[in-house]
Write a protein that binds this DNA or RNA. Structure first.
Lengths: 231, 231
DNA sequence: CTATTTATCTGGACAGTGTCAAGATTAGGT
DNA sequence: ACCTAATCTTGACACTGTCCAGATAAATAG
């Protein structure tokens, strides 16, 4: 049925036919796959994740409604691919932030947090798609692997912050702290995108200032391994 | 195929209709509104928020697809009402947690956080609906007011934690801290519901243990006004 | 260079969706 | 008892995602 051929064929335009760059729009037009992805990203940017429609995407790509099925299995397949690409950029953004932090573990986490929120605020639809339930197929191609890559960037910085070297096991407290930091950053992004911070006027001005208020507040008690065993 | 006509052969209603609790199934059956709400809650619990369908709800209530429109305007109206009721329970749960904390501000926030996450984990679909974008009409009846009620429960505890009395203005730092706490708790709930903590085995065991790890971690530096201006 | 296989894409169909307008039915107030 | 307003049905319309049989083009043989 929908056996989506996941053939790993590298047919990514090494060369192009010298002629005919334009007018023939009949049947195969070569870059449908990319065009569909671009159309999807544009569509959800305009109308939100729920405003997505396979047919509308096909329409924008100038193609029949059944065409996308040959590239991605079904609608969820297309959305999963878009999410995957999102996670790719997302992971890169986190890694770039991490690099900005230099050798100071706290700074690394700080910059990663900034990058996390910035990505979400600048790509609302994509971010919501990436962390949505049900819209993507969790078993899609290497979605799981790519999204885990982002996670590992954070994990690595946490490990550094806790003074762990290469191969020691992460202690439970470490994961607890990881979850705390992740939760806070992610929650901020999610609430901000949901317009939940638009009520009190004093909050509104703070949305762009996460770097100056929330993050330091979170990271204030970071560097030392949280082994205080409070309560 | 399965166009199962839900014919109501129950036309036994004989003569006397004096008693009100006697349910007759023809046309007006009195409690359609409540039945639609209940059906919606059950449906999204079973199939997730995206699995919602107005027609399916109508079907379950034994009523025509156009019937709900007379009670709630459209599909979003029904979902908004369900979200509103969710926020009602939610606010109560937060308030109950707050009360559990007694007179200790830190304990109040701690219990509220526990209540927040517990509500989300026990009512995943409802929680996701409440904090979804686009599924509800933000201008619905008093949705805004009710949801703000929950917010005010948190705000009050934050104020207490910062030693503010009745009518003083909340300082910007206060809102910053409120957002931090809210973000962390909310983010945890959202990530947990998204299955994001199901990767590393050491995390999985922690989902139920937020009360023992994450929350204290967040609240460790709570009581004093966060004016340290770090970094 | 021709023939055949394989990858793409179309067109039409089907079941499902939300919503609207017109009409049937009933409840309630005067 | 009438009349009005609320409630619900019926049928329609424009959508949606997905499947199927075929058309078309490109790739790969032979």
């Amino acid at each position: 049925m929908n056996s989506v051929k996941i053939k790993r064929v590298e047919k990514v335009s090494p060369r192009k036919k010298a002629v005919k760059p334009a007018p023939k729009r009949a049947y195969h037009h070569g870059d449908l796959r990319e065009k569909l992805i671009a159309a999807t990203e544009a569509l959800i940017r305009e109308r939100g994740v729920d405003g997505f429609s396979l047919r509308e995407v096909a329409r924008r790509a100038g193609v029949s409604p059944a065409a996308p099925a040959h590239h991605f299995g079904d609608a969820r397949g297309l959305l999963s691919e878009v999410a995957l690409l999102g996670f790719q950029e997302f992971g890169d953004a986190l890694a770039a932030g991490d690099a900005l932090g230099g050798s100071d573990p706290a700074a690394r986490l700080y910059e990663q947090g900034k990058a996390y929120v910035n990505f979400a605020l600048k790509n609302p639809a994509r971010f919501q798609l990436m962390f949505s339930n049900g819209k993507c197929d969790p078993a899609y191609k290497n979605l799981d692997e790519i999204s885990n890559r982002s996670f590992r960037v954070l994990e690595k910085a946490i490990r550094a912050a806790m003074g762990l070297t290469g191969s020691d096991e992460m202690p439970p407290d470490g994961y607890g702290y990881l979850m705390a930091v992740w939760s806070c950053v992610h929650g901020f992004a999610h609430l901000a995108l949901g317009g939940q911070f638009d009520g009190p006027a004093q909050m509104r001005g703070m949305k762009g200032e996460i770097s100056k208020t929330i993050l330091p507040l979170m990271l204030a008690h970071l560097p030392e391994p949280p082994a205080q065993k409070t309560l």
